[in-house]
Structures are given as structure tokens and as C-alpha cells.
Design a protein around this nucleic acid. Structure first.
Lengths: 178, 178
DNA sequence: CAGCTCATGTAATACGTTACATGATTAC
DNA sequence: GTAATCATGTAACGTATTACATGAGCTG
């Protein structure tokens, strides 16, 4: 049920927005935090409306609907933030592959890890670029968004170091085998 | 489609097993990597059989079915490992909450972060315990499993340090406000 | 023989992805 | 006037969670 709360939270921070606006916000600021597709978002907005957590504040051109969080919605968000224990979902495709890399040749395994390093460096660069692009005008989004961004950096750096370490371990093992 | 490959990979490493055995293996060794529920696993085993990637090698007491990976299954696993680009899903409920912590009082927000630290310490302790429990007899599972475990440790440690840093940032901000 | 563990399955529901579909408005 | 952008929606399918259901075999 977290898409629901991500939507509510963003709507509060943005002080009202359309589905289209929200979608962009998900792409830009929430890339490292929570993904959402267009279909999913529009569906959720309708459900949130039915449940009374948001309402259509005004309608604009091209069928645009500007949503706003209701009192009930603020309550729900607060309840979720403080009372619902976070559910940690652990599913990492890269780690999963690593687990089974013993089933291919050592050089193929090392190649896989090196590809991940390249991909990671690209993402780190993208993150740096994003950091410069973002308009940190909202006080809350700015403070907490910056914390999340720092997390992203630390996470990728940790991952990079671990990859290097893995390559070292692999090299060592293969050297011993000779 | 990764449950499929997690199942194939584990079946290869275990050199054949029942759904029940696999389920335990998922719980014990794959906790930090890939979660699976009982329903999901049994369903996937039947689909894998239909698709010819695994087969029932023998049947035991209580309707037990011992599965084994077929040639086609080995090929599929190899293909997935080396040719299918890993899909990174970024959804982190804790980070998501952090993003919106500006919407509750500062002390409530700090309380939330502190709770996460406690939960993390518990998981780190569990991981250490798990490390001692595991029977690292299979050469591949031992080598790659150890790499994955090291990842788990580094990940949690990074996270812990970041939480500390977050608490520091929060304290600083609140001090400035006075 | 009672209770535990082993062992598999299904049904309902929720959540997520991909693709398709449509049309209004704006900018050039 | 045509291309790009804004804007929303639905349908089909795949994946995941929860709960229910059932029974065989082992242990004391």
C-alpha cells in the first residue's frame, strides 16, 4: 500500500498537483526511493478520491484535475508515517545473480561484476547531475530530499567498493586454483 | 521472472530438492537476497515443470516430490545469468517515510529514525548468528554465499552510519531554529 | 494417540507492468 | 497546420500476499 502514501506525501509537499505533475515528480525526485508507472498512479488517484483521502480541487484545460489532500488524507499519512511498521522487502536481482555465479566460468563471472561497476558509475554520475538540476525551493523537500540523496550516494559508493572487493576475492580464488 | 531463476539456481546448488526443502533454503540463505512465500514457490515449481526446466526425479513419503533441473533448465539459468540485463527495482519503504518526515514534529521524526537504528542492530546481530549457523559445505554456495553475506553486512553498516548522520543533521537543524 | 513437522495445494485479493487508446492545447 | 506536450484512462497479463485446506508420517 505504499504507492498510496507516496502519492499522499508528494501531494502534500507539492501543495496540490495533477496526476501528470505527480508523475514527473516521481521520476525526478523519487527515482531512488519509489518507482511508479503512469497507469498505476492514475488508478491510485481515483482510489484515493473514492476513499476520501484526496479531492479534485479544480479542473483545468485538457481534462486536467488538480488534486488536493483532504483532512482524512493528512490523518492517513500521519498514521502511516508513525504507526505502521515499515515492511522491508528484500529482492535484489544483482545479488541474486551473484549468488549463482559459481555456475558459470570464472572469467564470465568476473565480467558480470565488471559490467555492474560500469552501470553503477553511470548511475552515480546521473545522480550528481540530478542534484544540480533539482530546484530545492520547498523547505521540507529540500531537507529530507537531501538526506535521501545522500543515502543514494552512500549506497552506490558502498556497492562500488563491495564490487571491487568481490573482484579481488575472485582473482585470489582463481590464482589459488592454478 | 526472478523467482523462477532463484528457484532454478538453488535447485542446482542443492543438487535436487523438494518444494519444502527449497522453502527452508529461501528462508535461511536467501533472506537478504530474494524472498519467496510458500504459495508462490509451489506454483512456480509446477510452472517450471510444465515448461520443462525441472522434473520430478523421485517421489517420497507424504507426497514429497524431489525436483531436479533438466538440461533445458541449466541452459535457461545460464542464459539469465549472462544475457538478461538485471532489472533494478528501487522501492524502499523506510527511505520513502524519511522523505516525508517533515510532515510530523521534529521529535517524532527523530524517534522514527532511532527506531530504525534499533531494528537494524537487531538484524545485524541476526546476520552474525546466521553466519555461524550455516553449513558452508558446498564450494560454490560457500564462496558466493559469503560474498552475498559480506554485502549484507556492509549494507547494514552503511545504513547505520547514515542514520547516525541523519540524526546529526536533524539535531543541527532544530538547534538553528531556536 | 496426540501433537508436531513434513508436505503440497488452491482461492481471493492486491499490486505492478506493458501496451493500447484517445484527445485537447500549445508552440512554432 | 502539424508536431510536441499535456493529460487521462483502460485492458490484459504477470507477480506477490494472505488465508484457508488437507493429509501423511514421525515422536513421545
Amino acid at each position: 500500500m505504499s504507492l498510496r502514501h507516496a502519492t499522499l506525501g508528494l501531494l502534500v509537499e507539492m501543495d496540490g498537483a495533477s496526476g501528470y505533475d505527480l508523475l514527473k515528480m516521481f521520476e525526478i525526485t523519487m527515482g531512488n526511493v519509489w518507482q511508479a508507472t503512469q497507469s498505476q498512479l492514475y488508478g491510485e488517484l481515483n482510489k484515493l478520491t473514492t476513499d476520501g483521502f484526496i479531492e479534485v480541487a479544480s479542473e483545468g484545460p485538457r481534462g486536467r484535475k488538480e488534486y488536493r489532500v483532504t483532512e482524512a488524507g493528512h490523518g492517513e499519512l500521519r498514521r502511516w508515517l508513525l504507526e505502521v511498521p515499515p515492511k522491508v522487502v528484500r529482492r535484489d536481482e544483482i545479488l541474486l545473480r551473484l549468488f549463482f555465479l559459481g555456475q558459470v566460468e570464472p572469467d564470465e563471472a568476473a565480467g558480470f561484476v565488471r559490467e555492474q561497476v560500469v552501470a553503477l558509475d553511470k548511475r552515480l554520475a546521473d545522480l550528481g547531475e540530478l542534484e544540480n538540476t533539482i530546484n530545492w525551493d520547498d523547505a521540507n523537500l529540500s531537507f529530507y530530499g537531501r538526506l535521501a540523496m545522500e543515502y543514494g550516494k552512500r549506497f552506490m559508493t558502498m556497492r562500488r567498493e563491495w564490487y571491487e572487493w568481490v573482484l579481488g576475492e575472485m582473482a585470489e580464488r582463481d590464482a589459488v586454483k592454478e
